[in-house]
Design a protein around this nucleic acid. Structure first.
Lengths: 339, 339
DNA sequence: GCCTCTCGTCGAAGCGCTTCGATAATCGGT
DNA sequence: ACCGATTATCGAAGCGCTTCGACGAGAGGC
């Protein structure tokens, strides 16, 4: 529709002021009389002025855009990623920034390109792994960055994540309170542990530690994601540990298969086996029975990540690690009325 | 690390040529001698030059960025969305473009802002609904756009999607070939149909049409997403239609519940009931039994969408609607050996 | 009533790039 | 050996904005 975009020059002419005055009205970086301000804002509205992003970026050396870098491994717990992404966008908009989406398949070069071309002012990396190949690059980049997830060495970085060790422990504590003495963790597929994914390992550590601390017996097992494999694993587990009454499941894709397998093996939930999951709320709610769970607070993690990045952009110092406290929601799968 | 970014001026000086020459080497818009080209490229490499995106956008009136606009309703079939998103990014990079992520919660204003500020050159909208509030805006925007999904009125737009009507029909045809005479479609939750979501309705239409065409009997039902509701619905369906032997499921979240419910009701798949799903391959593969399915070809849809957008950016005319042909993968859930 | 401040505004200088027109240098064609 | 076409390169004019220093006009101090 519009032929050519309205420029600041036209706004200035229309309002009868200098271009710089319009700029100052819009940025608030210098005092402007109420009268002038009103006239300028009227013209802005009347003409439908939108500052040109490129020109602004060029002159101010700030693009007002941050990069959101997708994880190396797509395909894993994908729904949560989408939540992260939308929350990062929403949070960034709160600071008047937009979000550029970068994938892994360009590798570190994509990050370097976006940063070096001043396309973005800073970076948020999703789902960082223990030995993440993107991390070394971040250390040498002029642009600030924030990681969602903790690599092995966090020196010189800024990392945010749910405290998965606490989450694992919290599940155990909940089961211990409910009187369970023998528990198991069904975690991520084996390959995920081998790859050294931080959150999977940290959950397991928290689980193991809490089991010891409460004097329980417990095993931690990886868990594949097809129904057959899950059913077989659950079968073996039940056979090997007849006294088992509590299960912690940290695997979104498998959690419903676990419930199906228990059903198939004639175990009632929660009467025979109580189940606590670490998964999004919607999955917990639509399972049968509804699952007591610790959710991954994607929105809060994202908000924190963006806040930290904005702080860094302003030149403030920020902590190296920020761990978010997990919260457990009790639902039917650990209901008190055991028999 | 780097103090200040390398500019084209420094490259020009280092290579002993004019700034414009460097520009032409990089853009290829004018002939440059092999020798000069080599010298310039050497300097570019040696100095680690990356063109400043803002300056480039300002001078060329092209940001080389496209917007990816998330659907109004997040939360639905979310994994596919993530696939779309990553595929759009990958496809865009092929054309040397980056992707800006826009959410719905700013509403149409976000789209207008990004377009008017020349932050982006064009838009791809994900998961468009029949009466999508963003569509009117697109018509008046100077920037070209492509929709993933079909609104009710596609006049003046460019839309891409899987041919869901064909997908629904394809499932029926497959069941008919296998000798099934009485079939049912379990679709999206009722609310999705009420909202007028295009792909849900179109699948249903294709299903209904194919049922009639093949002289089968069939019903199409909405399908909620908790195990209890699915189990109840399946129970009623089996009771009401004792002759039912074929099921089409178009609901990613419910498909595993459907299998669980059939198991619970003592029906074997595929011996008693054959099941065809419209869902991503990974879900179909990790179900038990593995599901014959029509997948949503997110990657191809995204690639087409980006290609069409690039065509429009170049000023080419493109078709209003592009429907992608569905393909059915046969797996265990409709295995031939019925008894 | 003079001097100094502060406040509000202006003009101009870039920011780093693309692109247009001009200028040299080189090339066949005859 | 001269002329018009190419071909390769340069210089300069913006693109639309921010920001710096300057400046006129009131305000306040003495």
């Amino acid at each position: 529709m519009s032929g050519r975009a309205v420029t600041i020059t036209e706004v200035a002419r229309h309002a009868g002021v200098a271009v710089s005055t319009v700029s100052y009205v819009l940025s608030g970086k210098r005092a402007i009389s109420a009268d002038t301000r009103r006239r300028v804002l009227d013209s802005v509205r009347k003409l439908g002025y939108h500052p040109n992003a490129g020109a602004r970026a060029l002159a101010s050396r700030r693009a007002n855009v941050i990069a959101l870098v997708l994880p190396l491994r797509a395909g894993m717990h994908v729904p949560v990623l989408m939540q992260f992404a939308t929350s990062v966008v929403t949070a960034a908009r709160q600071y008047d920034h937009d979000v550029l989406l970068l994938t892994a398949d360009e590798g570190p070069d994509g990050i370097r390109r976006a940063a070096a071309s001043a396309l973005v002012d800073g970076l948020v990396l999703m789902d960082v792994e223990l030995h993440d190949s993107r991390v070394p690059l971040l250390r040498e980049l002029a642009e600030p960055s924030v990681l969602i997830g903790f690599p092995a060495d966090t020196a010189g970085l800024t990392c945010v994540d749910l405290d998965f060790a606490r989450a694992g422990a919290l599940c155990v504590e909940h089961l211990a309170e409910r009187g369970h003495r023998e528990v198991a963790l069904l975690g991520a597929p084996a390959v995920v542990y081998e790859r050294g994914t931080g959150f999977a390992r940290r959950t397991r550590e928290g689980f193991t530690e809490a089991v010891a601390r409460h004097g329980l017996t417990g095993v931690a097992l990886p868990c594949e994601e097809t129904f057959e494999q899950v059913a077989a694993a659950v079968g073996e587990l039940l056979a090997a540990r007849p006294g088992l009454t509590g299960l912690v499941v940290h695997n979104e894709a498998a959690v419903n298969h676990v419930l199906g397998a228990l059903r198939q093996h004639g175990r009632r939930v929660p009467q025979d086996v109580a189940v606590v999951a670490i998964c999004p709320d919607d999955i917990a709610e639509r399972s049968s029975p509804a699952l007591t769970s610790v959710l991954i607070p994607a929105e809060e993690v994202a908000r924190q990540a963006v806040r930290l990045l904005m702080d860094k952009l302003e030149g403030h110092a920020v902590p190296e690690g920020t761990l978010l406290e997990p919260r457990l929601t009790v639902r039917d799968s650990t209901a008190a009325d055991r028999d």
